[in-house]
Simulated scan of single mutants.
Amino acid sequence: MLNEGHPGILNDVRTRILDAAEELFACGGYAATPTTVIAKLAKVPGDLISQYFPRKIDVLVALVDERTHVEENDQVDAVPGDLAGTLSRLARVLPLRASPAMRRILSREADTHGSVKERLGRLNGELVRRARFALGLALPGARGDAARLEVAAATFAAILIYQENLCQLTGHQIDPDAVAELIAHSLV
């Protein structure tokens, strides 16, 4: 039974379970990770997980809901004519909150879990919206070319979200400044 008198201890146990699940789901995937392994890594009794998360899917849903989001902040440091600089600054201040492990989980599990796919779609949509807005401010004359701005914004957002996966696949870190420069050149 959960000890209602010690909320700090409860939060610590729950956090350890989520930390362990994040690490394991990112490495081996949700389906390949039994809750007993999560419990072992979290250093908690196996049956304790079910007191916090009745089903294994509840662990994944909690991770996605609690550890991935884009903070509300529409401030953009856009300079007309400076597309690359605008995108570079946006990449540095973009309030995307998802660890590299969570980004791997999102991309890996989106095909098989609706709640993960929905969260990934919302994150991507918000990043595209912000990148499109920033590009529109930096390139005011491009308003008539909405399709090109949409593609540029979508490309930029995808690289920000999937940069950890790309690094794992290629062994090379993706430089957001280089991506910003490439996208800027494609729009002028």
Rank of each mutant, 00 (worst) to 15 (best):
E66Q: 13
Q51S: 11
L48E: 07
V70H: 09
E66Y: 02
V61L: 04
V61R: 11
V44D: 06
L63A: 03
D58T: 10
V64N: 02
R55W: 02
L48A: 14
V44S: 03
E72H: 13
D58L: 08
G46I: 00
L48W: 07
Y52N: 07
D65G: 10
Y52L: 04
K56E: 07
P54W: 06
G46M: 03
P54C: 02
K56W: 09
L48H: 08
E72M: 13
I49M: 05
V64M: 06
G46W: 05
V70N: 09
E66V: 01
E71N: 09
V59Q: 07
E71P: 04
R67K: 07
S50T: 12
L63E: 04
V61N: 10
D58Y: 07
D47E: 12
K56D: 11
G46C: 06
H69C: 09
K43I: 04
I49K: 06
E72K: 11
V44H: 07
F53T: 06
F53C: 08
A62P: 06
P45K: 02
P54V: 07
L60S: 02
D58N: 15
R67G: 05
A62G: 00
S50R: 15
Y52D: 01
S50C: 09
L60N: 05
T68R: 00
S50D: 13
V61W: 01
R55L: 14
R55D: 14
F53I: 02
V61Q: 13
R55P: 00
E72C: 12
R67I: 01
P54M: 05
T68L: 00
A62C: 01
K43R: 14
F53W: 05
